[in-house]
Design a protein around this nucleic acid. Structure first.
Lengths: 254, 254
DNA sequence: CGACACTTTGAAGACGATCAACGCCGGTGG
DNA sequence: CCACCGGCGTTGATCGTCTTCAAAGTGTCG
């Protein structure tokens, strides 16, 4: 509809790194803006895979439903992230999960063939896609390891730490961007367990009251989480967090 | 060393699908054969990422070590699979895990730049890589979900089922291809738990005695595993297994 | 034969899921 | 305006599962 409403923010996405402005223009003008209100489904498990999406604003929940009716949230995606590349590149016919808007969201929608052709035609884009998906694969394998070896408290602390980095929150004080029920589903635990766990985190350097979180002792948290996180030095979230807490400490000091 | 020792088996790997014979020749002749005896490390966590590998024969264990000394096996790779593409494409400087030969293995070794250049130059290869890595990302996320929601018995049953498909074993009777200790590490559980669990699987259609396994009631197993496996119809292993058990039943019947 | 790695089995304990009850809040409707 | 409701979160009690610790059995290889 609108010819060029969302230029720079989208063009600067990592997916398009290494492409000329000209190439970005050409590619992006095939995108269709799609608005998705809070609670509205983008697609369902089993639907055929028809589009690739860039998230312009808002947040999208990816989840699956077990036969016993429970939902497991796989990931919550936010502005600047992409959606669908994995299933498209794996040449799935039908979606393997559900996608629903958690808050009012705006997406840029492209056809499957757009992505496949673009990956063939522009090798930087193919490499960017590879990098994105490789990163996802790695994080997913770390996730599996965490699920296997970390306690509920460590899972929650790790989650809060990474949440803080991803959303660029001030660790000293921020509000949870979505409900505790959703967080519990994301972490694969029951809401009761999450509730009890949050209370216990005071001993580990994190205070949670209602939806207000303060990671008041980031160093202790990092030790607590990374103590069982075998990726230690490699985990982008942890190193980011250390830098960040350093940064905030610096700002406070000066 | 040897000019063309391992031709067709390697050329028919999915990674090279869509390339001409000429192109495959050109690419493959840059590979160096590397032999790796049982127990020998291919690389360690922290080593710089220098090569990409095709596994010609044998099997390679990927694992990480927690600070408390325990090893978590991420995956066991076998002939026909590749190694290193993930870390290369994610542009890691150093390895995020250890790789060790479980049995005497033969690999074909390529430089990092070989892979990156090939992905840029040959778009089918880039797409094949994308497909491989996207599949890994998906399986890893399913793994995380399994770790969160499945019982030890379900994890083991699921593992045996997939093992059977991957190695093209006859479900009616096969030997475990590696130790129970390794399997426990792969499944993120203690060896004691695995030992106890294997005994209990009799009720679910699987008999295990020593290292001999018989999935005598594949249908029941599939129901048992998929009952909590939310990917149900999508899981390649499960559908494969159903086909396979159908196949074996057919062979028996005729 | 003895060393050692691998596996099994038993008993105790920790942790998280489950069931149940209740408090809190925002919205709807009388 | 107040009563009722439903979604969300908290708290308590109980139960099942997996880990942990300990001991002993099995196998292979020098």
């Amino acid at each position: 509809m609108q010819p060029t409403v969302l230029p720079e923010s989208v063009k600067s996405m990592p997916l398009f790194a290494g492409l000329t402005e000209q190439e970005k223009e050409t590619l992006l003008k095939e995108g269709r803006v799609r608005e998705c209100g809070r609670g509205q489904a983008l697609f369902h498990h089993g639907d055929s895979v028809t589009h690739f999406y860039l998230i312009i604003s808002g947040s999208i929940q990816l989840f699956r439903e077990n036969p016993d009716g429970k939902e497991k949230t796989i990931e919550v995606l936010i502005a600047g992230q992409t959606l669908g590349e994995n299933e498209i590149m794996d040449s799935c016919r039908s979606h393997r999960m559900n996608a629903t808007a958690i808050s009012d969201s705006v997406l840029l929608e492209f056809s499957v063939s757009w992505l496949k052709t673009a990956a063939q035609k522009y090798s930087p884009l193919a490499l960017n896609l590879l990098s994105t998906i490789a990163g996802q694969a790695y994080m997913a394998s770390v996730e599996a390891e965490h699920q296997a070896y970390m306690s509920a408290a460590q899972l929650v602390a790790c989650f809060l730490q990474r949440l803080c980095v991803l959303h660029e929150f001030n660790p000293q004080g921020f509000d949870l961007p979505y409900s505790k029920t959703l967080i519990a589903s994301r972490l694969g635990m029951e809401i009761e367990t999450l509730s009890r766990t949050l209370a216990k985190l005071k001993d580990q350097g994190i205070i949670v009251e209602g939806s207000r979180v303060s990671i008041y002792d980031a160093i202790r948290v990092a030790e607590y989480v990374c103590g069982f996180c075998s990726i230690s030095g490699d985990c982008p979230a942890h190193t980011e967090m250390e830098k960040k807490s350093g940064f905030f400490l610096d700002t406070q000091a000066s």
